[in-house]
Every structure is written in C-alpha cells, then in structure tokens.
Design a protein around this nucleic acid. Structure first.
Lengths: 196, 196
DNA sequence: CTACTTCTGTACCGCTTGGTACTCAACTCG
DNA sequence: CGAGTTGAGTACCAAGCGGTACAGAAGTAG
C-alpha cells in the first residue's frame, strides 16, 4: 500500500501563523495571499490541508480557544465565582494586550463583528463562541450558588452577562492602544461592583 | 452664469442610507455596489458627490455622531458626573439595540475593528472617534471634580476609561442578539461600581 | 525498478473589487 | 434660441479576490 509524498510542513504549527494574521486583520480583512505568505505554503497546499478560507478560520478559532484564550475555560476551575470572574477578566487583559497581536484585542471580538455576506459564517461562528463562553460562566455561577459562595437571589445570567460585557469592552479598548496596566484598573472597577 | 443640471438626489439624505449599510456590514464588508444600490444612485454620482468610499465613510461617521450617537455629546451636558455616565450608557444601550441596525451594535465599534490594509484608514478614524469620546468624558469628570460633585482623589481618566469600556462591551454584546432590557441590567451593575 | 499515491508549484479560472472615460440629458443665463 | 455648465447612466478598466486543473516531484509497497 503506497503512502505518497509526505507533507513538507506541520499542519498544526502553520495554523499559528494563520492565527496571527486573522487576529490582526480580521476575517474579511485577510486575503488568501496574506495567509499563504504568512504560512509559507502555496495556495493548493492550503486548500488540501484545511479545506478553504472559512474552514481554516474555524481551525484557527479552535486553536485560539485552546491557546491564547485558554483562560475562558480555566477560569471556570477557580474555587469561587468571584475568583472565576477575576481570572477571566485578568486573563482577558493579558490576551487583548498580547505581544502576539500588536494591534490589541481578542480574536473572538475583532475577528468579524459586522460583515458582508462573505463573512457571515465567520461572524456567526464568533458570536457562537462568545455566547458559549458566557453560558459556561453562567453555569459556573449557578454552581457557585449551589455551593453557597454566591447569593442565591443573584441572577447568574445577569452576572455572567455583565462580566462578558466588560471582557468585550477590554478587547475594543485594547485595540485603541490602551495598555495592560490601564485595563487592569478597568477590571478593578468592574469587580468593585461584585455583589455582596 | 450657467449653473448646470441639478442633482437629482439629496446628498445628506442619501448619507443615511449609506450609514445603514456601513452600520450593518462594516467598512470592509461593504462593497460599492451595496452602497449604490442602497442609496439609489449610480457609481459616478457617488464619486462626484462624496469623493470615494473612504471619504463617504467619513461623511457617514460625522452624520452618525450627529445623529444616532448624539448621546456621546449630550451626556456631557448632564448636571453631574454620575448623571453624565448614566446618560452615556443608557444612550449606548438605545443605539446598539436600535431598530435601524437589526444586527445590533455601534458603528464606532463594529465599523472596522481589525482590518487589512484597505480598511486601515477607516479603522484609524473609528479609533480616533472612540478616543475622542472618552477624552471628552474625562474632561467632563475633571470639571465635575472642580465643581465638587466628584471626589478630587478619583482618577478621572480611569473612570472615563471604565465607562467607555463598558459602553464598548454593550456594543459587542448587542451584536450577539442581547436585547435592551438585559443590557440595561448590565448598565445597572456597571453603575453600582460608581465611586462614593 | 515499477506501480501507486500524495504533496508541491505554476499557471490559470471566473468573478468582484474600487474607480473612471465618455456620451447624453437637464438645467441657467444671455 | 444657443452657449455653457453640471449631473446621469452606460460601459469599461486594471487589479485583486477565492478557488482549482494539471504536470511533475517525492515518497512507499511489492
């Protein structure tokens, strides 16, 4: 059974280079030529390995959530609701001011907020990702209510929405050039509104 | 002195139609054909009346800040710093859930957060607009300190950054389909962190 | 070595992009 | 009326877009 010519590049590793481009330029602002150049592969190799631009973006997004945006999941493992919220927000500051994206901001937010028809699928995917993160946080808060470290009369959905909203705001603000220290002070204020 | 054929459309009125398109689809997601179709004029008429796509976007942005986003300025006229902050945030909720943009969100945020080379100018213009709004708010807070309705040891810049950040977050959240009532509850929590 | 499979690279596809040349229509002024 | 000016509309441009056909290189299996 013949096996064929081996691929000359590492599929996962090159995803990181694609991630950097999408992160900086957004989905619609990124051309295939930008991707092939950054990834160091030819167009047909890209299509063979990843499908098409949209599918590549999906792979990149998964990698983003497993990598730079890992804090969205790890925050849920904190022992208390308040610690989870703070972990999420501090982690967000780190990501949106990451040296990897000098422009600042979070891929889940900047990637494709408003788009034409072509970017619709990417936009929807990002919105799903944001909603999923918020839902996971809400569930964590509900668990905290069961465990007694969050008042049972609090509205967990409202609280999660608030934290998510602040996190989104950090992303936009970072893309205006605001640094990590200033954003941490925003987080300080946001957490000052924590119930109880 | 001959005057020439009169223009068959109202330059300012058609800007509103262009605004709706840019608001929904963002700068890069909007093609000239989208604009000419929505505005009901031909391409050469658009170029004669507005310059080019980038210049048209600039005109649209001015109109946006004088129209739908008027609250950014009117908030400054409130008698107290706290009232100004609340006016700004409540106004933001209204704009980002406006029926005019069913997708939700604020043009200053969604218009062009991350772009390729082509959208760079638009991106920079929006970032300037956001920074200008925050600076105006900071100055209003400083005035409030002079007038005595905001503690003099507060950091006005930090406070303005916090309010701006929350406002940006509302925009992103709205584009995920969150309604006005839920966003007002986010504002409630954000204002619960108000100093004093 | 040959047969087979799979990746690489060039060269191309149709389509859309932002932008414009040019002709004709509509208007004012003398 | 005609001369002069300006907008409208068609038809077009080069360049870039996302995506692919095809020939040849690189490997494995027998």
């Amino acid at each position: 059974m013949a096996v064929g010519r081996p691929r000359a590049f590492d599929v996962e590793e090159r995803l990181d280079r694609a991630l950097d481009v999408f992160w900086r330029q957004g989905y619609e602002g990124t051309a295939l030529s930008d991707l092939t150049e950054a990834m160091g592969i030819n167009r047909p190799s890209l299509y063979a390995a990843y499908g098409n631009k949209e599918a590549l973006f999906g792979r990149v997004l998964d990698r983003y959530q497993d990598g730079p945006a890992r804090h969205l999941r790890t925050a849920l493992e904190e022992p208390t609701a308040r610690a989870a919220a703070e972990h999420l927000l501090r982690g967000s500051v780190a990501v949106v001011t990451s040296a990897r994206n000098p422009g600042g901001g979070c891929l889940l937010v900047q990637g494709a907020l408003a788009t034409g028809e072509q970017g619709e699928a990417a936009r929807a995917r990002l919105a799903d990702g944001r909603r999923a993160a918020e839902t996971a946080l809400r569930r964590r808060f509900e668990r905290a209510q069961d465990e007694g470290d969050l008042a049972p009369d609090e509205d967990a959905a409202d609280l999660a929405r608030y934290i998510a909203s602040v996190s989104f705001g950090l992303s936009v603000h970072a893309s205006d050039g605001t640094g990590a220290e200033a954003l941490h002070r925003v987080v300080d204020r946001a957490l000052a509104a924590w119930p109880g």
